[in-house]
Amino acid sequence: MLEAEKDQLKNEILHLAGAYNNHRSGLLPVLLHIQQKYRYISRYAMQEIADIFRIHPVEVYGVVSFYSFLSTEKKGKFIIYLCQTISCDMAGKRAVARQLENELNIKFGETTPDGLFTLKYTNCLGACDKGPALLVNEDLYTKVTPEGVFDIIQSYRAKFGAHVTMEI
């Protein structure tokens, strides 16, 4: 990371933590913010966050590793969380999962080489009556069909202004 980027990140963390008087109760909101903006929480970020909250970096690491929406590795711009829990499973999650992997040419847990998409399983999204359900960043999709997967992915490609046709 460049020094300038580091400084920017640090100032950002200072600002965010300031809203919580640097009290540890602000830790999760700050982490979520950094996660959303940078798509991961870097070692440097964890260390700076620890410093500001007056705790140890390893404690921040412990927290980050605990929650499934936080990560220490860079995720795609769009994270697709497919619900793997029972109702969605019974409603046809497996076919959707297969199609997601085929469309993006990656496996669950991986990120596309262009850094656009990450595939992840998650547990119940609270849309069990309309499974299979998936979440793309903050957007909820229900009754997803294998055919529909393509459209969902395309709409995000378009949003990002990337080539609409698939490479590879």
């Binding site: 109702s87 119940c124 849309a127 069990c128």
Partner: peptide
């Protein structure tokens, strides 16, 4: 978070 619950949403 209980699987199968969505009333709170």
């Amino acid at each position: 978070g209980e699987p199968g619950t969505f009333k709170d949403r």
